[in-house]
Amino acid sequence: MFNRGKTSLPYLFLGPSLLVMLVLGLVPTVAAINLALKNRVLRYPDSDYVWLRNLERLMSDRRFLNAIEVSAVWEVVTVLGAVMVGIAIAVYLFENVHGKWRQAMCVLLITPVLLPRVSAAFIWKFMYSPLTGILGWLLGLVGIHDTAFLSDPALALYAVALVDIWQWGLFFAVIVLKLLETLPPEPLEAARLDYARTWQVYAYIALPMLKGPLISLVFIKMVESLRSFDLIYVMTKGGPGVATETLDMYAYAQGIGLSGKVSYASTMAVLMMIATTLIFTLIWKRVSKWED
């Protein structure tokens, strides 16, 4: 319709929305960087520029280094856990459940992700309670009494991650199931005629055919897992000790919840922004190359 290069209409249409996006994205980013270079503490009205001193302090801050480790473990466990659980359940349902029962299962599987995160966190926190929770009671029946998962530094992070996987893994199962239903049946039938086992049919044929959508699911979960604050805050508040203290949790504690050191917290936020941008770009490029 338009002669490319000879009309400025695309710029006219795109310009205002790009400008709005630029302002919305740029203003908070510049403000955060500016704050990160100061020593602003909420309690005091004045502040000075300290440039990179917050960054220097972060590099020797034991809790910050611990938070990086916890965040990395959380990211790996929840992303891999949700995707693998999703695939496993989807394959099981695709193989064994058909018709209206499959539809009913889909409705059930989608329910956990519809729950607000805070509600899910409270439900599981009560279930985990060693004295009054149902999990403690069930384990007590088989003679296991010390079931304070959320208070055990070695288990707490995984106990919270289980809730995340429960919400997202079951939801992913529905998505993967629907993706499997879109595949042409011929390649799968041909593999079965050649005596391929069930796991081989999926590992070598069905799932590779769904590589693109599955990678998108992984990326969606990676971004979603970065926003784990509400779940962890309700269930453990970062404890026991600092065993579940992720970067956003520690930034909140320093900036608002604990001491009002907003500049210090802002430095963490800026670092997180740079790190996630770099890591995601790197992974994206690697995946694109792999797909090619």
């Binding site: 404890g239 919840g257 604990l258 001491s259």
Partner: peptide, 18 residues
């Protein structure tokens, strides 16, 4: 509040054995 909350984290680490 700042001093007390920071001390609280240190104590929780001790109590939970980390």
């Amino acid at each position: 509040p700042d001093i007390g909350d920071n001390l609280g984290v240190a104590l929780e680490e001790v109590f939970t054995g980390t």
